[in-house]
Design a protein around this nucleic acid. Structure first.
Length: 427
RNA sequence: GUGGGUAUAGCGCAGUUGGCUAGCGCGCCAGAUUGUGGCUCUGGAGGUCGUGGGUUCAAUUCCCACUAUCCACCCCA
């Protein structure tokens, strides 16, 4: 299999059984968000490259090596969106949405693109559900966001013990600067004992030192400075408020001081939803992050809007699908209500008309009939294969008599019905 | 980007110490006195044995490269 019959690396065909799962997740997330006052927004798949450099951060891996960037025919540099938050922020600023009643709550489902090495649960094209709140700089706002996610998981049937909500506060930019300095100073003491990756982290992104998986470097973690100790009094108070709010709603969470987000724009609250397969490993570090988010108060101003607080999260649809496959139960796919088997041209036309009429009367009725001219036997076999609940055979006899036999495929019960009265088909 | 595994029909797999028309299971299509499903039986369609080179009389099998895929790292939803 080569060339044109192979999907590009890192992409995924969503086959009928997959799209069904995606729809369950998407409809659930969207409908649940509505109950919290979120309204859906859709933005372009590509944006000016500069948007992501400014928002995600020039030094992040996403911007430095993972973006699908190209020049259009007029030489403008465009980039396929690597995440949703920056795009929504841009659209909100551009369209003056902050002039509406605040807080402004927006949600979206969108595909994202990152040029990374594909791996389990990681694709170059993936989709996210996201929710963002603007103009609410309070712990309760963050609590409500986490509550929304929690509610979505609950409605999807994911058991509460299958995942953890892990929260942390990385403070305001001032707290973080102090902390990073302290962390750097601490690790510089062991510089010659660190692994190669950690040497780079020390320079580029010191907070990443804490989740190095090299056991050698791990030895230094326990005594390393903890970011929560460096939160200033107002940031600490904010974080206390978040915890109190979650407690009040009886939403279980764990404080995990090692959570740092990869994107530059986060401030204060950060959190992750992590699936932990207990049968696979007892190691704390093992887990699939299927959703994450936090507060990003600086972003709107950074992009040229007025100073507006913001907070939000994103869920990975594909990752959520694997979590539900392992823990929850997807509803069974729908089956046809009736299959009309036919003999001869006259009956085929009659069946086509009848099926059409049934579907017009009752759009939820799924009616099928033969369109490939197969034998009655083959038609019945097909009806069975697709799981039709009822079947009937129409031939010249039935057309002349005006009656036919409706068969319940499961119980084999037969019932005579009047072909001239289409209502007798229903029920 | 780094390291390791894999690559034979739609799916899951055999196989050849290099050699006749490359097999099996499932699935798909059709038939079993011609107007009826699930079981059974029979038949059928479907494969450039990932791609390109090399060694050889001969390569799906050996060697090399490339590509894809999976796993781990980096990073992340």
């Amino acid at each position: 299999m080569t060339l044109i019959t192979k999907a590009p690396r890192g992409t995924l065909d969503k086959l009928p059984s997959d799209t069904l799962k995606c729809r369950v997740i998407e409809e659930n997330a969207l409908n649940t968000a509505v109950a919290y006052g979120y309204r859906e927004i859709r933005t372009p798949v590509f944006e000016h490259t500069e948007l992501f450099k400014r928002s995600v951060g020039d030094t992040t891996d996403i911007v430095q090596k993972e973006m699908y960037t190209f020049d259009d025919k007029k030489g403008r540099s465009l980039t396929l969106k690597p995440e949703g938050t920056a795009c929504v922020a841009r659209a909100a600023i551009e369209n003056g949405l902050f002039n509406e009643a605040l807080p402004l709550k927006l949600c979206y489902i969108t595909n994202c693109y990152r040029y990374e090495a594909p791996q389990s649960g990681r694709y170059r094209e993936f989709s996210q559900f996201g929710a963002e709140v603007y103009g609410a700089d309070t712990p309760l706002c963050d609590v409500e966001l986490i509550a929304l996610a929690h509610n979505i998981f609950e409605k999807l049937g994911i058991p509460a013990n299958a995942y953890t909500i892990e929260i942390n506060s990385i403070g305001c930019p001032e707290c973080r600067r102090l902390y990073q300095d302290a962390l750097k100073k601490y690790y510089e003491g062991f510089k010659d004992k660190l692994c190669g990756d950690c040497h780079e982290r020390l320079e580029r992104n010191p907070m990443r030192l804490l989740d190095c998986k090299n056991p050698h470097c791990g030895e230094f973690k326990s005594n390393a400075p903890v970011i929560l100790d460096y939160n200033c009094s107002s940031c600490a108070e904010f974080f206390t408020g978040v915890k109190a709010g979650l407690d009040a709603l009886s939403i279980p969470y764990k404080v995990n001081a090692r959570i740092v987000r990869g994107l530059d724009y986060y401030t204060n609250t950060v959190f992750e939803f992590i699936y932990r397969d207990s049968s696979k490993s007892t190691d704390e570090s093992f887990g699939l992050v299927f959703g994450a988010g936090g507060r990003y108060n600086g972003l709107i101003k950074e992009l040229g809007g007025s100073d507006t607080a913001a907070s939000g999260f994103a869920l990975g649809i594909e990752r959520l699908t694997t979590v539900i496959d392992k823990t929850g139960v997807f509803p069974l796919p729908q089956k046809p209500d009736i299959y009309i088997a036919t003999i001869g041209e006259r009956a085929a036309i009659f069946a086509l008309k009848t099926a059409q009429e049934l579907r017009r009367r009752e759009p939820s009725i799924w009616a099928e009939c033969d369109i490939v001219g197969r034998s009655v036997k083959a038609q019945m076999r097909f009806a069975d294969k697709i799981g039709a609940r009822f079947s009937m055979v129409i031939g010249d006899n039935e057309l002349d008599n005006g009656t036919a036999v409706l068969k319940n495929m499961a119980t084999k019960e037969n019932k005579e019905i009047d072909l001239s009265n289409i209502d007798s088909f229903i029920g």
